[in-house]
Design a protein around this nucleic acid. Structure first.
Lengths: 161, 161
DNA sequence: ATGTATGCAAACCATTTGCAATGAC
DNA sequence: GTCATTGCAAATGGTTTGCATACAT
């Protein structure tokens, strides 16, 4: 789908959400949404802040933190915590379901799709719980780190001989 | 399995790990492992610290933070981040694979088992990545919050009429 | 004896909060 | 005009770090 069309739709959805909850439609909030839907992949809020600071609409950190809560609540943005003490986010509208591979050595995050897994999770019926969304994180060692790690352990063994 | 037997096994595994990596076998490290395997469920490190402080073996926060890294590395403990800016942990040996239901309203965390999902994820072949473990978090609304939330939105609508 | 591990306190840093000024309604 | 929202700066709090002391090897 055309990216401009997507932006239009998410803005409409945001407007509906704001109205429903009695929140004001401020230019800051729309600028943040617009900015988030202008690029792909994960981002943290400091990066978003800096990226917007150098752009044409500057907003404060406080406003970014406030607005991201609204965007999470209306499901236009997803939050991830991959292990470090920092939160990452990604747009969620028109962003197909995917799972995350996280390298425990270097922290690299890769995305994969698997419709069988997705379908099974989405169709899971749970008593006394209304599922809204889910995150599947697979931790392991990426190709790049795989050889390095074995070397390290081997070295330790050698040292102790 | 008998819990004392489990403690014995995990201590052995920890010893192997320490030897392999050239780390010392300090009483603090074993006391922390022993303590973690003395109860069920999730815990954060502040709770662990306080729990151990009132017990018979006091360790510093720094040592807890250091030791938990080792226990994560040798896979005797699992780390979770359920959305808040705090990390939770749980023992992983003899702790059957389960998934987490997280209520986005009240933050309550519930565990469920689903062998079909587990099997599908565990058997997934991924190129250029060696999976070690995974976490599946399902976010939604628990029974208790389900009615409360609808009331809230309804009230907002009424107010705006 | 050597140097890793511990304990303490200070530092760090992502996030939250308080408050005066702004502006959406 | 009212009060939610913004921006700034200070506060918070989980986690990390620096360093002197202790102790596993």
């Amino acid at each position: 789908m055309d990216n401009e069309k997507i932006k239009e739709i998410v803005k409409e959805k945001f407007t509906e959400y704001l109205a429903l909850h009695g929140h004001r439609r401020t230019p800051e909030r729309y600028a943040i949404l617009e900015h988030i839907y202008s690029f792909d992949g994960h981002f943290d809020l400091e990066a978003l802040y800096e990226s917007m600071s150098s752009g044409d609409f500057r907003v404060s950190r406080a406003t970014i933190y406030n607005t991201i809560e609204l965007l999470l609540d209306c499901r236009l943005v997803l939050k991830h915590q991959f292990g470090k003490n920092i939160s990452y986010y990604e747009k969620s509208y028109n962003n197909d379901n995917h799972h995350h591979l996280i390298c425990t050595e270097c922290g690299a995050v890769r995305e994969i799709k698997d419709n069988d897994i997705s379908r099974l999770i989405e169709n899971k019926k749970i008593s006394r719980f209304k599922p809204v969304h889910y995150s599947l994180y697979m931790y392991g060692v990426c190709n790049k780190c795989s050889s390095t790690k074995n070397k390290k352990i081997k070295n330790n063994k050698e040292i102790r001989k």
